[in-house]
Design a protein around this nucleic acid. Structure first.
Lengths: 284, 284
DNA sequence: CAACTTGTCTGACTGAGGTCAGATAGATTG
DNA sequence: CAATCTATCTGACCTCAGTCAGACAAGTTG
């Protein structure tokens, strides 16, 4: 029986040899690979230069040069951002958009050719396997960052949380004027918040986990328990011996997860009108 | 519901962003990536230069230069093959073998770090998904080549076939002095024959599929039916209207496959002492 | 054994990909 | 408003990766 790591390494070799070419399908349209990738990354909506730099992990000088060469070929226009004229935004020109379509097409053709020898049933198996692998690999590479509890990343993530509560609670949800917790963690994947949660002191040696949320598309990938473990670590570092949390009966997945994580039901400890269930766990 | 192609393309993006780094783990040991890959490919047992060329898909001049640079660093020795002194074989020196170990270690560490955030169950799911994807991707990218029926590739593949018959038949198997068929197809993956089969005229408009074999590790991936379809095409191109084949009752997987492919049982049409069952299919 | 084929090597050259050290223009802050 | 910081750009430079043409030695064939 092979270990996950052996399977992963074996797959990696298979993959780079055979599917890796999907990327190189960008070649042959008269553009070097990195320029083609850049066109792909700018996309139909355009993107900020700094944004591109971080997404592609390129040196600022190098990226600048790539953009200049795309401009010379009339594929891209770069314009200053009106709000902050130091920043610039790259947008595809009409011919750039045509090129993007060709790139998409080629990549699709190649994918098509790759699965062509498989029967319908095998394709379905492959789809399912790759879909599972995709979710798990994404889940494994989500980065958990502690952010400023009053900053924009925290606010944006909390927005998703409040919006979901509002959708799920029969009478809607009114966050009022929320006070930021002592510490706030955001889980990000591809630049988007996919989960979040805060920790706040509510008594001597007692921390509370607040505003914990996981994007619905990401549930079942273990992200919730990972985040919860992380938040318990944050609480422990802050000197708490116990963590508590409250929740609403509607949020059944969350409740199941708290129980799996070793939380036990306790009496009401606050006057949160939306809370119906209360949990506690002693930190090791 | 996403199509296989969409899933594949999505996975490809996830993958190149996150696992693609497994390869670059070869960097940082003072060797450029291609040299490191070459050391990896030479492996502990050494490898022929031509073999390396085809496995890595490199230009002969480029490969030669890479080998020279590894020789200069005392990582590799290249020696002529005693049987054919044009051919040369690359072998790792002791320090080359140490380097290979370091490369393996790094790649393993990286894979380990990647799966570390997953729970045991998730890792098992990932293993299974990647294993399935690996088999299917390999099966999809096997290349079917028509080779010289009397050449070395055909002989090597047939050797596997005869060896398996010898293992499986109660009284063993004696191929005698086999005459090469009119046409022979070998399916190759990573330079190894994984399946083969020949077509021979045995009457006016009648072709026979002979010596068809699929590597046991590859059964269940649809390779057999794909090869059979290919051989039927070869027979049709040769002007045959019907294909026949004979087989032994021991080879139950093969028999099931012939039936699935639309073959029907017929009377004995030859005096092959090992054959017990006879099939026929009309070509469209 | 002459003519060919095959396997590897050498030399000359190219472009992609990337780094680093400033320069410059716009924003922010005391 | 001077000083500082930030986002981007320019110029100089370097290595890696790869191609192509041809040389050459060893093997094969008529």
């Amino acid at each position: 029986m092979l270990s996950t790591i052996q399977v992963l390494r074996r797959f990696n070799r298979t993959y780079t040899q055979r599917i890796g070419v999907l990327d190189e399908s960008f070649l042959g349209l008269g553009l070097p690979l990195s320029s083609a990738r850049l066109v792909f990354e700018i996309g139909a909506e355009g993107a900020g230069v700094g944004d591109l730099r971080s997404r592609l992990g390129l040196d600022s000088g190098y990226l600048s040069r790539l953009l200049r060469s795309l401009e010379e070929r009339d594929l891209v226009t770069v314009e200053p951002d009106p709000a902050d004229r130091r920043r610039r935004t790259a947008i595809l020109s009409p011919s750039g958009r045509r090129l993007l379509e060709q790139l998409e097409q080629r990549s699709e053709d190649l994918a098509h050719r790759l699965v062509a020898p498989l029967t319908e049933r095998q394709r379905a198996r492959l789809s399912e396997a790759l879909g599972t692998a995709d979710l798990l690999v994404r889940a494994a590479t989500v980065s958990l960052d502690e952010v400023d509890p009053a900053g924009s990343r925290a606010t944006a993530a909390m927005g998703h949380y409040f919006a979901e509560l509002d959708r799920r609670f029969p009478g809607g949800f009114d966050p009022g004027a929320p006070t930021p917790p002592d510490s706030f963690t955001v889980a990000t994947s591809d630049g988007r918040p996919v989960a979040c949660g805060g920790v706040q002191q509510i008594g001597a040696g007692i921390g509370e986990v607040k505003r914990m949320w996981v994007d619905p598309a990401w549930r079942g990938a273990g992200l919730g328990s990972r985040l919860l473990r992380h938040l318990e670590g944050v609480a422990a570092d802050a000197g708490h011996r116990v963590v508590r949390l409250d929740t609403n009966g509607t949020l059944s997945e969350a409740i199941a997860m708290y129980e799996r994580a070793g939380y036990t039901s306790i009496e009401r400890y606050n006057d949160n009108p939306y809370a119906e269930l209360f949990f506690e766990k002693a930190l090791p």
